[in-house]
Design a protein around this nucleic acid. Structure first.
Length: 155
DNA sequence: GCCAACGTTGGC
DNA sequence: GCCAACGTTGGC
């Protein structure tokens, strides 16, 4: 099983929204590197950290599970949608999404700041300078270490 | 709201 | 295929 982290702006879609909905199609990936990882490496049953980006205290706020294989992101075909891609066709779709299911909130916001300060997480793409990937793989070791932070007292 | 760091686009 | 211009991401 693989582990992942996926970013989302909570103003657009938050962990609370996912809890209410239970399931959501993770549409809107428009970066080739992110897409390739989703398309080629993401499997049903994989666990994913839900990360809130572009907020006052960015960080990991929940866990979700991949419950579908990758399939074409419908928004790429919708001319009215902001994620419309005129170069993509149903016969040859460019962008994919997966369905994710709510698992749980983390006990607290595991903040970007504390992840940066954790020396054991130096390989985490998230804390590397200039990283803008909205989907990234998390090693099993990092996954365990990040989860262990849950029970620490927030500083 | 600013802006650094990227990714993408398109002229050549 | 280079690279300047442009758009976007996302922390701060």
């Amino acid at each position: 099983m693989n582990h992942w982290l996926m970013k989302c702006e909570p103003d657009v879609f938050s962990i609370d929204d996912l809890e209410k909905q239970k399931v959501e199609g993770w549409y809107g990936i428009r970066n080739y590197q992110a897409r390739n990882m989703m398309r080629d490496a993401m499997k049903i049953g994989d666990l994913v950290f839900f990360y809130h980006s572009n907020v006052k205290v960015p960080g990991i706020v929940g866990i979700m599970e991949v419950i579908s294989a990758p399939y074409p992101d419908p928004t790429q075909f919708d001319p009215k949608h902001r994620y419309f891609d005129p170069k993509s066709t149903p016969e040859n779709p460019r962008w994919v999404q997966v369905d994710v299911q709510y698992v749980r909130h983390t006990k607290r916001n595991i903040t970007l700041q504390e992840l940066k300060e954790d020396e054991t997480l130096e390989d985490l793409p998230l804390v590397r300078r200039g990283n803008r990937l909205s989907i990234m793989p998390i090693s099993a070791q990092s996954w365990t270490r990040i989860l262990a932070r849950e029970n620490l007292t927030a500083e």
